[in-house]
């Protein structure tokens, strides 16, 4: 009963993640699908773009998005969600967007892990987004022009898409905020979780990167615009294995 005075037994965070991820996947999808889309926690450095596990757990993350079933969402749901996050953070002259940065994979993994309670809200919300698009703009969300997609998303964001017969649970704004929050986590969070591929999010912000120690000279260099950004996951520092 006690691990008193001695310290706790060594269980790494990655061990925990691996266990939780596997259990979540097994519970939600048939074995064959689970094998095909297995969520594999990263174990090697993502510094080599597209080759480390950050780039390899799912195919085509830097190529144009190809709709398919994710672990927690159907192909149809994944298609709508990808169209939505593509409008939230588009790929444009400022650089890669949410799809390029692996946000879809981030969300799918999150739905197997910390955000498993949100899976139903995603399914209901994505269906409602599509229903609302058809009722008000005359077509499914993915077929609308980007202008109409943006117009729909604004109405979803401000809660104006909350009407009888659409199907948003608890207001369209809460669905929008949930997706936006997870999209931002996937875009700007640590690449360990499957997003922020090639550090696209950190580059957009000019974030100087994860360092365990920042010397006075580093801070002065930062202030002078002369600090070279570090581009590595926290988990590439060996001590957090």
């Amino acid at each position: 009963m006690t691990d008193s005075n001695g310290r706790r037994p060594a269980i790494s965070r990655r061990d925990l993640l691996r266990t939780a991820g596997a259990a979540g996947a097994a519970a939600l999808v048939p074995g064959a699908v689970a094998a095909a889309t297995e969520v594999t926690p990263a174990t090697a450095s993502p510094e080599v773009a597209g080759q480390g596990p950050v780039g390899s757990a799912l195919p085509a993350e830097t190529a144009p998005f190809v709709a398919r079933a994710l672990t927690n969402l159907t192909a149809r749901e994944a298609e709508i969600l990808s169209a939505m996050v593509d409008r939230l953070i588009p790929s444009d002259e400022m650089g890669p967007g949410a799809l390029d940065a692996g946000v879809l994979r981030y969300i799918d993994r999150a739905l197997s892990e910390a955000e498993s309670d949100a899976a139903d809200a995603y399914r209901a919300g994505l269906a409602a987004l599509d229903t609302y698009s058809r009722y008000t703009r005359g077509g499914p969300f993915i077929d609308l022009s980007t202008v109409d997609q943006d117009s729909v998303l604004i109405d979803v964001q401000i809660g104006a898409a909350t009407g009888a017969g659409v199907g948003f649970v608890g207001g369209s704004g809460s669905f929008f905020n949930m997706v936006k929050s997870h999209t931002w986590q996937g875009m700007f969070g640590d690449p360990e979780y499957g997003g922020n591929v090639n550090f696209a999010g950190w580059d957009l912000l000019d974030y100087p990167g994860v360092r365990l120690g920042v010397s006075p000279q580093d801070q002065r260099d930062l202030e002078a615009g002369q600090l070279e950004p570090v581009r590595r996951s926290a988990y590439d520092y060996g001590m957090f294995e």
Binding site: Y135, T136, G139, G163, A164, G165
Partner: peptide, 10 residues
């Protein structure tokens, strides 16, 4: 006045 949307399928 707000319209119930399912009365206007397109």
């Amino acid at each position: 006045e707000r319209q119930p949307m399912n009365q206007f399928p397109r």
